Simulated assay, not measured.
Amino acid sequence: MHLKVPPVAVFLIAALLLYAGAKLLPQLSLSFPGQSLIAALLVCAGILPGGQAVLAFIKNKTTVNPTAPDRATTLVTEGCYRFSRNPMYLGLLCLLLAMAAYFGTLTALIVVPAFIWFMTEFQIKPEEEALQNVFAQDYQAYLARVRRWI
């Protein structure tokens, strides 16, 4: 792995930046009808695939540790992994979007793309490399049929 910053820490930093943007730069916030409902729906959209992904890893008795993908014992491809290779990170992204909607902060226009870029470059790509080494052809076939995010 290139960087061993746990994804939850990256998420918390991004969430803190969204909160700080909303509080420190209120002129960059807006309110709109259905704001809380959209935020609640995005929370659900984040918790469901993320939770299902963790349960799939536990069911398959493989590591959930994102800093040690080379310790994976099973290539999980069922459930939400049929649609996204990274449903846990997609779940975190949805939670960030929920925060952005709830606060109405336009700082999300910088924070959210930065989160996606950082996670892709420093977490997902190194994970993909490690999983390629562990699962070889099976992982290559999985890469060909399932997208990285959605």
Score class of each variant (00 low, 15 high):
F122G: 06
L37T: 14
P69T: 03
S36N: 14
M99N: 02
A68P: 12
F32E: 00
Y102K: 11
L37Q: 01
F83I: 08
R71E: 14
Y102T: 03
A130Y: 02
L143Q: 09
L42V: 00
Q27D: 07
A130G: 13
Y19E: 09
W117Q: 06
R147W: 05
M119L: 09
V76E: 12
L75W: 07
A130I: 07
I58Y: 15
D70V: 13
R85H: 06
F103E: 11
A114R: 06
A53Y: 10
T77Q: 11
Y89F: 13
R71G: 07
G91Y: 11
L24Y: 11
L42W: 08
L16H: 04
L28E: 10
T105W: 05
E78A: 11
L90R: 12
T77R: 09
K4D: 07
A130L: 07
V146Q: 05
P6I: 10
G21P: 00
A72P: 10
L109E: 08
T74N: 12
Y81E: 08
L25K: 02
I58K: 13
I110W: 14
W117S: 11
P87A: 05
V64T: 12
P69Q: 02
P66I: 11
M119W: 07
N65K: 01
Q140P: 01
S36D: 15
L96T: 00
N65P: 01
L12R: 05
L28Y: 06
V76F: 12
K23Q: 15
L48H: 06
L48C: 14
G46M: 07
L90K: 05
A68G: 08
Y81Q: 03
W149V: 02
S84M: 10
A130F: 04
G34P: 06
T105A: 03
F32G: 00
L93A: 10
L3H: 11
A72M: 14
L24E: 14
A22P: 07
A144K: 10
T73C: 15
P87R: 08
E129F: 09
L55Q: 10
F103P: 05
A45K: 05
A20P: 08
V76L: 12
I38E: 15
L109Q: 08
L24A: 13
Q132T: 15
R148A: 04
A14H: 00
A15Q: 11
G34V: 13
F57H: 08
C44R: 09
V54F: 02
Y102Q: 03
A15T: 01
T120G: 00
F118A: 11
A136D: 10
R82W: 05
M88Y: 09
V134E: 12
A45N: 03
